[in-house]
Every structure is written in structure tokens, then in C-alpha cells.
């Protein structure tokens, strides 16, 4: 303690000496009083401390990692039974009947309503539809048939009759969709959009397929 005090005194003396040597004569008289001055607001603090509001925890969506740990992304190869998803197909048929108005005849290619027909088909949902791969660049995908349970940007996940879940890339395949009595052939290349975004996007009426 004593060493510190002497050090402080030495420092104070040095400062006073420095000021005396450098200030003008009128300033030198008031050095002592100036140095002892108090600032009005320097030491005072408001007594009432600000109370912090208890931060309410917001319910957030699951992060990707949490979803992964629960198992949202990995559907095991034998995880989904065909009989479990069969009712989805029944509901889907009713739904697609409502949307496309299949009780009326399908409009001709040259007619005006062809545009709206393709638009609604493009905007419809494909979860639960019966898909059949007609053509593909990879021969092992050909003739895979099943009910679609997941629809991502570039793939379909289908459950076939022997309870096996397979992932099929859209871009290289040509699909056949069964709408009760009718069949529709769709080039998977045109479906390469996220399922949620598809409902806002527009598609051309006539798209020329690749050779």
C-alpha cells in the first residue's frame, strides 16, 4: 500500500510541476483549486436500476440438424408399407378429379382451355399419385411403379408394391400418371421445381421435348 501511495504522490507532483512550467501566469494561480474540482454528474448514478424483462423463449421451427436427428429426412428403404399409403392414392384420385374436372372431357390441344388444363395440372400436388417410369436414361429405373410419397426439387420418392422405397431423379425420366381411367405422360424435366414454389410458377403450354 505504502509503495503505491508514494507512487501516486510522485505522479501527482510530476503533473503539478508539468502544469506549473507550461501554463501562463494567470493560470498558475488556480492550478490547485482546478484540480480538486468535482464534476456534478461524475459519481452520481441513478438508484433505480433498469429491470430486465424476462426474455420469453420464442418457439422456433426445428433446425435442420434437429430435424435430421428426429429422422425427417431419412426414410428407410423398408420404412413405409404399401398398404399404408394406398389410402393416400384414393384421396388423391378424388382430389385430382376435383381440380382437373375430369368428368368433363379433356380439352383438345388446340383449344383455349388447354392452357388452363396444363396450368392446373402443373400446379396440382403429386403426393399420393400412382407413378410409372416409362423412359429413363438409366435403364434400371424403367418400369418402376409406385405411389409417390415425397416430392423434392429433383427427385420423387415412390413406394412400390413390394414395400420398397426408391428415389427417382426427375430430370432424366419420363413419367406416366394414372388418373383413374386416363393416363398422362409427363416429362420429368418440366417438373424440376420445388413443390411449394410450383403453385406460383407458370409453365408454357407447349414444350418441345428433347430428342
Amino acid at each position: 500500500m505504502s509503495a503505491e501511495e508514494t507512487f501516486n504522490k510522485e505522479a501527482a507532483n510530476a503533473i503539478v510541476g508539468f502544469l506549473k512550467s507550461n501554463l501562463s501566469k494567470s493560470g498558475q494561480l488556480t492550478i490547485e483549486s482546478e484540480l480538486k474540482k468535482d464534476f456534478v454528474l461524475a459519481k452520481k448514478r441513478s438508484k433505480t436500476k433498469k429491470k430486465k424483462k424476462p426474455h420469453k423463449k420464442r418457439v422456433r421451427c426445428l433446425t435442420r440438424q434437429e430435424k435430421k436427428s428426429i429422422g425427417f429426412y431419412t426414410i428407410p428403404r423398408n420404412g413405409v408399407k404399401y398398404n399404408d399409403v394406398l389410402p393416400l392414392n384414393k384421396i388423391w384420385l378424388k382430389y385430382i378429379n376435383d381440380v382437373l374436372e375430369l368428368d368433363k372431357p379433356i380439352p383438345d390441344r388446340t383449344s383455349k382451355s388447354w392452357e388452363t388444363f396444363t396450368q392446373t395440372l402443373f400446379r396440382a400436388d403429386f403426393h399420393g399419385s400412382m407413378l410409372n417410369v416409362v423412359r429413363s436414361k438409366c435403364p434400371s429405373y424403367v418400369d418402376k411403379c409406385g405411389i409417390c410419397i415425397m416430392d423434392t426439387r429433383n427427385t420423387f420418392k415412390i413406394v412400390s408394391q413390394d414395400n420398397v422405397t426408391t428415389t427417382i431423379p426427375k430430370r432424366e425420366c419420363v413419367f406416366e400418371i394414372f388418373l383413374g381411367k386416363q393416363k398422362i405422360t409427363i416429362f420429368g424435366k418440366n417438373l424440376c421445381v420445388r413443390p411449394a414454389e410450383r403453385s406460383t410458377k407458370k409453365i408454357k403450354g407447349h414444350i418441345h421435348p428433347d430428342l
Partner: peptide
Amino acid sequence: NDSFQRMNYLYQISKHIADKNPALSAYY
């Protein structure tokens, strides 16, 4: 209207599959 129909359909299948595969239900 078509989006409402789609949401309605997704709600139905989400309810259908909930007891068999909750992960798929959450996806829908």
C-alpha cells in the same frame, strides 16, 4: 382456389399418415 384445394388435400393426407409415419406427416 387451387392452392386452397391443395392445402386441403395435404391436410387430409397428413392426418391419414400420422399414426404410421409421423415424419411424413410433418413433411406434409
